[in-house]
Computed example of a mutant assay.
Amino acid sequence: MQSDRKTVLITGSGHGIGRATAKHLATRGWTVAINDLKPEFVEEAVAEISASGGIAIPVVQNVATAEGIDAAVAAVVRETGRFDGLVNNAAWVRYQAIPDIAPETVERMLAIGFSGVIWGIKAAAAAMDAERGGTIVNVASAAGFRSAPNSLVYSGIKAGVMGLTRAAAVELGPRNIRVNAVAPSAVPTEGTAKHRNAERDARRIANTPLGRLGTVDDIARAIVYLMEPESDFITGQVLSADGGIGIAIT
């Protein structure tokens, strides 16, 4: 039976930016599908949202493959009777100097962070209603605009995600499907902790006009804006949520 509530699948939403986005969308009346490879993360996120009065459904799938994202989207449709939104948030990141880049690192980062976005767009578009359309938001990065040492693969992938966003927006616009991206700067999360240190954080803060690092809620609110009707005439855009560091001369 079809629900009256909009439904959204958020990949990699067991923690970090994805989980914060799920919580914000749930408070706005969306049914949120929590996806992660780790069942315990999914269970925790679903329980937290349910305890706050929201509606969340668990989807444990490997969304780096076409088969996995197809199964995840099918699970949402089966559970709710509709599919209105996708947030391509899942990522796996390793920073390596060019001489040290390993094939297995490239393959895994591409599978999750680039190919997975393609398969997600394809599966979501196929599941969206012909009249209602839908909304897709891809999580890119400030690294897609400005790079740093040891980030060749990551920066390339995130720049590629921006290109996918624009191309999908052009092709899917006639079907009333909007496709945008959010490009965060460095945001402390469980997943980024091992790549951060106090000296690097202090340097980033000093170079950021707003004088602080972003939070998962900062990025979640940007994603929510692009998912909601307030942005109904916006598509193919990359919204920088970076405190201004991308425009500052350092």
Rank of each mutant, 00 (worst) to 15 (best):
V8F: 05
L9M: 02
T11H: 03
G12H: 01
R19I: 03
A20V: 09
H24K: 12
L25Y: 10
G29M: 12
W30S: 11
T31L: 07
I34K: 05
D36W: 01
K38S: 10
P39V: 09
E43Y: 02
S50G: 07
A51C: 08
S52R: 10
I57N: 04
I57Q: 13
Q61K: 10
V63G: 02
E67N: 10
I69Q: 02
A71W: 00
A72T: 04
A74D: 06
V77T: 13
E79L: 06
E79K: 14
G81M: 11
D84Q: 06
D84H: 05
L86C: 13
V87I: 15
A90L: 08
A90T: 10
A90F: 05
Y95A: 10
Q96A: 15
I98P: 00
I101Y: 03
I101T: 08
I101L: 04
A102T: 04
L110P: 00
L110T: 04
I112F: 04
G113L: 00
F114R: 05
S115P: 01
S115V: 00
I118F: 13
I118R: 03
K122D: 14
A125G: 09
A126M: 12
A127D: 09
E131N: 12
G134S: 07
V137Q: 07
V137K: 03
N138V: 01
A142Q: 09
A142S: 09
A143I: 02
G144W: 08
S147I: 12
A148S: 07
N150S: 14
N150H: 03
K158E: 00
K158G: 02
K158F: 01
V161H: 01
L164H: 08
T165N: 08
A168V: 06
V170I: 15
V170T: 13
V170H: 08
P174C: 05
R175N: 09
N176F: 06
N176K: 07
I177F: 04
N180C: 13
P184T: 07
A186H: 04
H195R: 05
A198C: 04
A198Q: 11
R204I: 14
T208L: 03
G211W: 03
L213Y: 11
L213N: 04
I219L: 14
A222I: 12
I223Q: 04
E230K: 03
S231F: 14
G243F: 12
G243H: 12
G243I: 13
I245Y: 12
I247R: 14
I249N: 14
I249C: 13
